[in-house]
Design a protein around this nucleic acid. Structure first.
Length: 140
DNA sequence: GCCAACGTTGGC
DNA sequence: GCCAACGTTGGC
């Protein structure tokens, strides 16, 4: 299983909205960046991801699971753009802020720390464990 | 709200 | 195919 990180501005699509979708899940649409799209194409059902609020909050707030593999993005007719569906798994007991990630030497190579622009990122298994530890949350 | 970093577009 | 111009993202 692979691990990922999904970024969203809370004003646009928030964790609470994601939770409200429950088992139905929701398209992670609107991505117009090749690197982010390629990451979504690589995802398999059951892969886990962090849900990150960018801009205002700048913190990881929960864990999501991929529940549909890459398919055309319904918000455009442009066939270049695809997206996966994700559903909320559980919230972080303690949200992990970007500042906390930057402080932890174990996360110094994390994409979130080094490439703030990429909206869908890979996360290593080691980084996954550290983030869940910082968030006091079950990593499974 | 500002602006640096980055990605994309389009003229040549 | 290069690169300047432009638009967007997201940390600060």
């Amino acid at each position: 299983m692979a691990y990922w990180l999904f970024k969203s501005e809370a004003e646009v699509w928030s964790w609470d909205q994601q939770v409200a979708k429950a088992e139905e899940g929701e398209e992670w649409n609107g991505v117009r960046n090749y690197q982010a799209r390629n990451n979504m194409r690589a995802m398999k059902i059951g892969d886990r991801g962090f849900f990150y609020h960018s801009r205002a909050e700048k913190e990881v707030v929960g864990i999501v699971e991929v529940c549909a593999e890459a398919h055309p993005d319904s918000t455009t007719d442009d066939l270049r753009w695809e997206c996966v569906d994700i559903k909320a798994v559980r919230p972080f007991a303690t949200p992990v802020t970007l500042a906390m990630c930057k402080q932890d030497p174990r996360l110094s190579d994390m994409v979130l720390v080094n490439n703030s622009r990429l909206s869908v990122q890979p996360v290593t298994e080691a980084e996954w464990a550290v983030l869940c530890e910082l968030g006091n949350t079950d990593p499974t």
